[in-house]
Design a protein around this nucleic acid. Structure first.
Length: 477
DNA sequence: TGAAATGTTGGGGCG
DNA sequence: ACGCCCCAACATTTC
């Protein structure tokens, strides 16, 4: 019987966890090593750390239920592994693969170090449906356009085979020390996270519950409903996926089941639409794996010398704080700040305003999202910011500039989402909610919001900033 | 997973 | 009844 260290990273689940499953017949010791600096410059942001703390707590509790124990260490991963090997006499390390540039580099170094110490290192595929190198064009090159990537994935067949759950695990000797979770200092010192508890319950159990609820309540209206931030029929599983509380295979499995059970063409259509979004996630990992430089530079080389106003953009702070004077923008930024997420439709609107109208470098937006989103994921964040800025793979065409007023009227017609996140506007009727500065002084008094005092006037003019953006983009073509 | 400008059509008011 | 204008509504083109 081998003694195996099962090294948890971003696979914080017990079900359908290949590394854990492969080790379960042996003497296994579940470990987590906290070494955020190894992911620099994209080490987890503040909101992600909040999630990570609670997700680790949940994992530790689940392991305990099965008779095991999570050993937490901190500091250099290689050193921590070697020390654990020395302490426990383990001969093997199992883990599930990560695909971003910093961890690929670290893990391959660790693989060599362990080999030098005669320790077996084995990695498994757990967080994607397809390995990034597995999906290829006919000429064996990576895809850069989504639709053909999607077609190929469908031809390959989205995998939905999942491993059965585990009922019992071997106990872990109390001789092995573990750092206390609190000592990782993942939670904020200033209690800005109070509202987070109303919005999220990190951990595997709740990820599964969320998936069931989504399928039951939202799937049949997904294609239409996902565009409306007030009602939102999105799955809200992105953070769970990022931390591996749920596997994409489990999602495909559950969706296929629903498809067969439902059988109506409506369920089929919406199920396919949702799976398409899951495959978008695959696509962003595919792109990051094959083009790791995109964490710094646009994929599209034409943007090498794009005149971004990247130094001290005068609008950036107002954008971050949700004080641009455009309600749909400010509501989104407020939702982000208060809850650690933002509805997908609104992410596109705020991203368009920042990169196009405000001419901010996409990295400025990427950095802010990185620190504030609970679902911050390097592949997704990088891809999506380059997408909206028009400089990435299969990107939004340069002329696609969202008008925050029009978008607001279309997708939050009654202003329900806006009022939820901007209490200053809660008495403003639908007629003015998308552009409150158009109210007369009397109306501002009537609806109890004085523009310029209780809520800002727009800080940027849409028409001219749009025209300026078009000129800049036209030149770079 | 746009928006704005420009073009076309058709109904109604009106001389 | 007819032509003309206006303009909303829709369609197409352009960025």
């Amino acid at each position: 019987m081998k003694k195996i260290l099962v090294w948890f990273r971003r696979d914080l689940r017990l079900a359908d966890n290949p590394a854990l499953y492969a080790a379960k017949q042996h003497q296994l010791i579940p470990i987590y090593i906290h070494a955020p600096e190894e992911e620099a410059p994209w080490q987890p942001g503040a909101a992600s750390r909040w999630w990570l703390h609670h997700s680790l707590a949940a994992l530790a509790a689940e392991l305990k239920k099965l008779g095991s124990r999570l050993i937490i260490r901190k500091g250099d991963s290689a050193a921590a592994l070697l020390k654990l090997i020395e302490e426990t006499g383990a001969s093997t390390v199992y883990c599930n693969r990560l695909y971003d540039p910093a961890t690929i580099k670290r893990d391959s170094a660790i693989k060599h170090i362990l080999a030098e110490h005669d320790v077996e290192y084995k990695s498994f595929a757990a967080s994607l449906l397809f390995e990034p190198w597995e999906v290829q064009t006919k000429t064996a090159t990576p895809y850069k356009v989504f639709t053909p990537f999607w077609n190929t994935c469908q031809k390959l067949g989205l995998p939905s085979d999942i491993q059965p759950g585990i009922r019992k695990l071997p106990s872990v000797s109390m001789q092995i020390n573990s750092v206390a979770l609190d000592d990782l200092q993942l939670l904020p010192k200033i209690p800005w996270d109070k509202q987070f508890y109303q919005h999220w319950i990190p951990g595997e159990a709740n990820a599964q519950k969320r998936l069931r609820e989504f399928i039951k309540q939202n799937l049949t209206d997904y294609e239409h409903g996902r565009d409306y931030p007030a009602v939102s029929s999105t799955s809200r599983l992105s953070a769970c996926l990022h931390f591996g509380e749920i596997s994409p295979r489990q999602i495909v499995y559950a969706i296929e089941q629903a498809k067969h059970a439902g059988a109506s063409s409506n369920v089929k259509k919406n199920a396919e639409g949702f799976l398409r979004e899951v495959v978008w996630r695959e696509f962003t990992h595919h792109i990051l794996y094959h083009f790791p430089q995109t964490i710094k530079k646009p994929l599209n080389p034409h943007f090498e010398n794009f005149p971004w106003a990247n130094k001290a953009n005068k609008y950036l702070r107002a954008w971050q704080r949700g004080q641009t004077g455009y309600p749909i923008i400010d509501a989104g930024m407020q939702e982000l700040w208060a809850s650690g997420t933002m509805h997908n439709r609104v992410r596109m609107i705020v991203g368009s305003l920042l990169t196009k109208n405000m001419n901010s470098h996409w990295l400025q937006g990427a950095k802010w999202f990185w620190d504030t989103l609970v679902d911050a994921d390097l592949a997704q964040n990088t891809f999506n910011w380059q997408w909206i800025a028009g400089c990435g793979a299969d990107a939004a065409p340069y002329f696609r500039i969202f008008n925050p007023i029009t978008q607001s009227e279309k997708f939050d017609a009654h202003g329900e989402y806006i009022r939820r996140w901007l209490p200053a506007l809660r008495h403003v009727p639908a007629k003015y909610i998308h552009s409150p500065w158009t109210m007369s002084t009397a109306e501002q008094q009537l609806y109890r919001v004085i523009i310029g005092k209780d809520y800002p006037a727009p800080i940027i003019e849409l028409k001219t900033s749009r025209e300026d953006a078009l000129l800049r983009y036209k030149k770079t073509r």
